[in-house]
C-alpha cells in the first residue's frame, strides 16, 4: 500500500466524523444565513449595521484581546516557573495547572459566582472587615467574564509556552551572559524572541477558544455582557431569528479562519529564513 493510501486510511475515520458532525451542519448554517427568512444577503447587512449586533461583535473582540493578553502573560510566567523551577516547584505548578482541567466549566463558573457575587465570600468579608460599605460589582459585568475566561484559558496557553521555553538552549543564554549582557537584556533580546513561536501559538489558541466561549460569559456576564456565541444562542433559541444567528456564526468562523491563516503565515515566515 502506498504511504498516501495508508495515511488516508488512518485519518479517514476522524475526517469522516468531522465532516459529519461539523462540516455538513455548518454548510446548513451557511444556507440558513442566506435563505432565512428570505433569500439574499440581508442578514449579513443587518449583522454589520445593526448597533446591537455590532456592539456584541465589538465587545467579543475586545474581551478576547484582553483575555488573550492577560492569559498569555500569566501563562508565560507560570511556564517559566514550571520549566526552570526546582523539582518541588515543578510538581506544585503541574498540580495547579492540571487540577482546574478536571473541573467542569460550569462548576468553575458557579464557583466564581459564589466567590464574587454581591453576597459572595469576597464581598461579605470585605464588608465585615469594614473595607467596603457597599458590595463591589465583581460579576455580571465584563470584569467577571474576563476573570472567568482567563482562569479557564491559562492552562491551554501554558503548554505551548512551556514547550517553547524548554526548547531554549541553555548555552545560548550562557553565551549572552559571557558577552556581558544584563539579565534584562538577555530576557528581552534573546530569551523572549527565541520563544516567539510559542507565544504566537499560545495567543492564537487562547484567542480562538475565547471567541467561541459561551457558558462562562453567559453565567458570569449575567446577560449584561453578551458575547457573540451567546448572541447566536439567543437568536436561535429565544427569538426565532435563525437567519441572523446563522450570519453571526458565519462571520465568527470567517474571523477564526482569517486569523489562523495570518498566524500560519507569520510563523512559517519567521521560521523559514
Amino acid at each position: 500500500m502506498p504511504p498516501i493510501a495508508r495515511h488516508a486510511l488512518l485519518l479517514g475515520p476522524l475526517l469522516g466524523l468531522l465532516a459529519l458532525a461539523y462540516l455538513i451542519p455548518f454548510l446548513g448554517v451557511m444556507r440558513w444565513s442566506v435563505t432565512l427568512p428570505e433569500p439574499g444577503l440581508g442578514q449579513y447587512r443587518t449583522a454589520l449595521t445593526d448597533p446591537l449586533v455590532l456592539s456584541v461583535l465589538w465587545r467579543t473582540l475586545r474581551i478576547c484581546v484582553i483575555v488573550t493578553l492577560i492569559s498569555v502573560v500569566a501563562a508565560y510566567l507560570l511556564a517559566l516557573v514550571w520549566v526552570r523551577g526546582g523539582p518541588w516547584t515543578q510538581r506544585l505548578v503541574e498540580l495547579c495547572i492540571l487540577i482546574p482541567f478536571w473541573i467542569s466549566v460550569l462548576t468553575r463558573a458557579f464557583g466564581w459566582l459564589a466567590l464574587l457575587s454581591n453576597r459572595g465570600l469576597v464581598n461579605s468579608w470585605l464588608i465585615a472587615l469594614g473595607v467596603l460599605d457597599e458590595p463591589l460589582t465583581l460579576v455580571r459585568n465584563e470584569f467577571g467574564v474576563i476573570l472567568g475566561m482567563v482562569h479557564l484559558l491559562i492552562p491551554f496557553a501554558v503548554f505551548p509556552l512551556a514547550t517553547a521555553i524548554r526548547a531554549v538552549d541553555e548555552r545560548v543564554l550562557l553565551a549572552a551572559r559571557g558577552m556581558g549582557a544584563s539579565r534584562a537584556r538577555i530576557f528581552w533580546q534573546v530569551f523572549l524572541p527565541m520563544t516567539r513561536p510559542g507565544i504566537l501559538g499560545a495567543a492564537l489558541l487562547v484567542f480562538v477558544f475565547a471567541l467561541g466561549f459561551f457558558i462562562t460569559p453567559a453565567i458570569l456576564g449575567g446577560g449584561r455582557s453578551v458575547m457573540a456565541a451567546e448572541l447566536v444562542y439567543l437568536r436561535i433559541f429565544q427569538s426565532p431569528d435563525w437567519g441572523l444567528g446563522a450570519a453571526v456564526s458565519v462571520i465568527l468562523m470567517a474571523g477564526v479562519g482569517l486569523l489562523l491563516a495570518a498566524t500560519l503565515r507569520i510563523v512559517r515566515g519567521g521560521a523559514g529564513r
Binding site: D169, R171, V172, L174, A175, V190, P193, M194, R196, G270
Partner: peptide, 10 residues
Amino acid sequence: VFQGYALFPH
C-alpha cells in the same frame, strides 16, 4: 565558542 555554536537563532 560553545559546542553546538549557541548562536542566537532569531
